[in-house]
Every structure is written in structure tokens, then in C-alpha cells.
Design a binder for these strands. Sequence first.
DNA 1: TTAACGTTGTGAATCCGTTCACAGAAAGTG
DNA 2: CACTTTCTGTGAACGGATTCACAACGTTAA
Lengths: 211, 211
Amino acid sequence: MPEVSDRAIGRLGLYRRLLKETQNQGKTHVFSHELAVLAGCTPAQVRRDVMTIGCSGSPAKGYDIDALIRSISRFLDPEDTLGVALVGVGNLGRALLSHFVGWGAQYSIVAAFDNDPDRVNRVIHGCRCYPVQEMPRVIEEKDIRVAIIAVPASEAQSITNQLCRAGVRSLVNFAPVRLWVREGVYVENVDVTMALERVAYFARESISERV
Amino acid sequence: MPEVSDRAIGRLGLYRRLLKETQNQGKTHVFSHELAVLAGCTPAQVRRDVMTIGCSGSPAKGYDIDALIRSISRFLDPEDTLGVALVGVGNLGRALLSHFVGWGAQYSIVAAFDNDPDRVNRVIHGCRCYPVQEMPRVIEEKDIRVAIIAVPASEAQSITNQLCRAGVRSLVNFAPVRLWVREGVYVENVDVTMALERVAYFARESISERV
DNA sequence: TTAACGTTGTGAATCCGTTCACAGAAAGTG
DNA sequence: CACTTTCTGTGAACGGATTCACAACGTTAA
């Protein structure tokens, strides 16, 4: 099992999405430079990434799309289906639910949590919403390892603590705060506020595209 | 004007938010190591970032919070108010609107665009929603430089082209695709799908926290 | 006044992701 | 079959962000 950076993990997922799209257009092979323009990176980067997951192509035809998708999936996807919990069913939470509904069997949001009486015990976008106090029980019962935090900043740390205690291994955090987690828990911060501040800064006259 | 990386820009915004919070707790000074734990980075990182914007502290008391906030604001914020457009008023778009409503005078979403007749010409979370075809006119009239793209992936590129043509300088892109923009336009991709894939990968047994 | 302490400011070292550059290989061509 | 072309695979070079490490300094205490 090679050691791969989180940046590379992200790109591999992107490649897979782009490859599926390309496949739908009837193509069976791609060259690194073709995938590179789709992904917005360099051909060398593509080749390096593909190499690290132990997949190889032919100098004449490029990479076999089907084989590459299978390699990426074998590398990225967990063996069994991965249950995901969503905490916070406000505007953002509902948007995420609708975004991930029918996302395929590999990952799916199998439980939502909130405290608002109007939301609790209802089914929203096909997902049952439980009260937060039942979180430990439900997470254990459904063997949930991943959680998405979409609660206000003020509640995020407390929710995180409960999630970690219940055995969650990694988190996507949408609250604009940095969470404290014990060693071994992976946190991916999606900070919309930061994104806007950055974009505002670079709106002045600036250059170039970034991930 | 020092040249600062986009990573540093993001951190500076984060520092500012954390500093305001700290200030509300009655403190007037912070040490680099205090801010570092709040921001989830190292003290050296904090000192370096603060240095690059030309602000200094005292070895005995640390940094004066008020002065630091003012320095960061002077560095990050545009001189005049910055108008932001939101394109796509679906679930995600509405979540973003409610997130940024009353965000302060510095940045604010001054126009929303959509094609759905149920949304067009209505005021949603205090923001007027225009039909997409009026985008060029409204963007020019309101001198909008920044846009948030919250439309389906299939429409994102076409919207981007129209925005760039209308003079938008930088974008936050929520659609799970890479956008092509002409040199000089800054794109910040917020790829929720990628975030989830990454988190799913690191749920296996992995280590450490990342931005 | 002097010494001890803990922090800032910053040149230098480090680390890690990215890119370069080229050998090796497969297909096409005459 | 030899020769050209164009790509892959990859060790090495590169670059830039991060961290180290320490001199300089303000404060406090004796």
C-alpha cells in the first residue's frame, strides 16, 4: 500500500469522475495530456498519480479508461459500503443531502441528526433525521465511520467530541472553525468563508488558478 | 505590497475571525502559540504570516489584537465594498445566501441569478434574484467583480464564460468540474465530492489533520 | 542595576509536492 | 526490417511553503 498525499487522493477521485464522463462519450483510451487538461493539471502529474496506484498504460494507446477506473476504485473505495452521517439539517445540510442522494452504493448518507423538532424523525431527501441525543446509538448500530458537520460554528466542537467518542474516524467540517480531534481522526475543512475571503483578495488584479 | 501565497491569505482571514472571537472574551493581546492552537498550525507559521503583512508584536505581551486585526483588514479587504454575485439559487445557493446574509459591509451578495421561474424576480434571504439572461447587464451596473457558482456541473462552464465576459475577476466554484478561464481570472474550487472521497479514504485508519 | 525568563523576528535548513527530462517501448511507415 | 514518432514510466532536479533555531529584546524580580 503506497503512501499517497491527500492532494493526490483528491485528484484521483477527480480523474475517476472525468474518466467516466469521457467513457460516456464513447472513448476507450486517454493520454495523460488529455486527462491533464480535463483535470486542470500537468501530464506529468497525471502520470505520477497513476503510477502511485500501480496502474500502467501503453505508449501507443494511452491508458485504458476502464482499467484505470477500476484501479482508482480499487485504491480509493473501501471494501464494504461506507456509511456517512450528516449532522445539522439546516439549509446547508439539506443541500448536501440532495447533492449526495443516490450517490451510488459506495458512500451514502445513512443518517442525519438535528435538534430542531420540525426536522427530527422526518425523512428528508430520503434520509431519516434523528435527534442528536440518539447519535451515539445510531452511529454504533449503523457502524458509521464518516461524518459531515453542517452545524453552526458554536456547536461544532461539541458535536465533534460526541462523534469521536462514538467512533467516527474522519470528518468533513463545514463550520468556519478549526476542530480539535484526537490523533488519528482525519478532518477535512471546507471553509466557505475562507474561500470567499481568498477570492475577494485575488479579485483585485491577480493571476492564475488554484485547487 | 508583499507577495503572499493563497494558503497564507486563507490563514490570515482565519486569524482575523479567531482574533475577533478572542477579543470578545476580553483579551487584548495574544502570543503566537495561542493563535496557533486556535488556528491549528504552528507558532512559527503564525509569526511568519504576521511578519509578511508587516505587523509586529512585543516579546513581552505578544501581539496587540486590535492592531493585528486592523493590519489584516488593511491587507485583505478591498478599499471599497466588494459586490458579489451568486449564480444558482438551488438548495446550495440558498444555503450560501443565508450564510452570508448580513456578513458585514465589506463583502455582500448583491445579486442572485437563476433560470427557475419560481425563483426569478423574487427576493430570497434579502437578495434579489434575476434571470440569467440579465446577468451581463446587472453585473456591469453593480460593478460586480466576484461570483459564486452554485449551478449544476453541466452548466458551470457556460455560466463561467458569461461571467468572465461580463468582467468578473474571480470565482468560487461549487460545481464538481474544473473550469476553464482566461489568464488572470482566479478560481477557487470548493469540491464537496472531492472532500467526501478524501475523507472516506482516510477513514480506514489514517492519521493527522489537514486544511 | 543586573540577571533570568519567555517571546518575537528572521536567515537558514528542511521537507514534500511538482515538474523536468530522458530512457524504453509500442505502433505506424516505407 | 529499419526508422520515425509519440507516448509512458521514473530518477533527479526544482521550488516554494513550512519549520528550525537562535539572536535580540522587553519585562519582571531581586
